[in-house]
């Protein structure tokens, strides 16, 4: 079985306290229930959650969607995005099976990064590690006015922004993430390989703006 790994990097810094973090928790529920009712995703999608504030931590290791349980999230501290990039690369190196002559490995991982602020650590080391790995589609989401899209553009071509971090907007973002995972798991099951750019993902809802 070839997994389709999905890494979610979620900002849990102090500024996410209150409605935003509750909305993210809710979003993870939306993601889980959407993917478990899709036959393609249910068979192929594996999800991991990496949270970052003062440091980065893998809250949920790469888990098949059928067994996935949304983690407890608490908002506090600063925004160690660099540490998160370093950690996700390490996790992928350990968890994603490489192709060998006898066995086809996993599909290239999808990465969704969501942050509402500026990184408070030096992201250069993490960014360097991150760039070395062969990812599938990487989408970075600048949530709310405080996030810096220029920094995110260094990580990936595919940057989207949310005008606000209210629950309705964040919910829409997670719905779009779910739809993107669905589209990708369908494509790989059809033998079409991974989706590689944002243009191939389902069109985002009006709340999610593509940053050019």
């Amino acid at each position: 079985m070839r997994k389709l790994p999905v890494y979610l990097l979620l900002d849990c810094s102090g500024s996410m306290y209150g409605e935003p973090i509750e909305a993210v928790k809710n979003g993870l529920q939306v993601l889980t229930s959407t993917l478990t009712s899709d036959p393609y995703a249910l068979e192929t999608a594996f999800v991991s959650v990496i949270t970052f504030n003062t440091d980065a931590r893998q809250a949920v290791p790469l888990t098949e969607i059928a067994a996935f349980q949304p983690p407890q999230l608490q908002a506090s501290g600063c925004t160690a995005l660099g540490a998160a990039l370093e950690l996700v690369t390490k996790c992928a190196e350990n968890e994603v099976v490489k192709t060998t002559p006898e066995k086809k490995g996993d599909w290239k991982p999808l990465v969704f990064i969501m942050t509402d602020g500026e990184p408070t650590d030096d992201i250069r080391k993490g960014l360097e590690d991150f760039k070395r790995y062969k990812w599938g589609t990487v989408v970075a989401c600048a949530a709310g006015a405080g996030a810096n899209t220029t920094t995110l553009k260094q990580i990936t071509e595919n940057v989207v922004s949310l005008d606000t971090t209210d629950s309705a907007t964040i919910r829409q973002f997670f719905k779009w993430v779910s739809a993107s995972v669905q589209a990708n798991s369908m494509k790989v099951e059809e033998g079409g390989g991974e989706l590689s750019s944002i243009g191939e993902l389902p069109p985002p809802p009006p709340e999610v703006n593509i940053v050019i």
Partner: peptide, 13 residues
Amino acid sequence: IPVAFNPDPRSIW
């Protein structure tokens, strides 16, 4: 204590 039951993957095709 939430518990989630997934549909049988084979049944949702």
